[in-house]
Amino acid sequence: MITTALYLTIGMVTLATLLNVYRLIKGPDEPDRVLAIDTLYINAIALIILLGITLGTRMYLESALLIAVMGFVSTVAMAKYLKRGSVIE
């Protein structure tokens, strides 16, 4: 039962990722694209966790943590760049 639920969930998250890519390409403004990337990295974390459950290992959690930290910092940096024109003043 878990296997079925797992594959269904992976399907749904993959579909979500594709929708994010659609928004990333379509735009129309820069903040939309940054928001799409922000959502993409969160979905990537979900996919990594699902992969970990599928393979029955916890090894991938470290990379999920790294993506969470790096993704947040880069989103904030991009938002700051859009607002001020530079990241570090």
Binding site: M12, A16, L19, A46
Partner: peptide, 8 residues
């Protein structure tokens, strides 16, 4: 997750 992406 899917609903969030549909919203986006």
């Amino acid at each position: 997750t899917l609903v969030g992406a549909i919203g986006l």
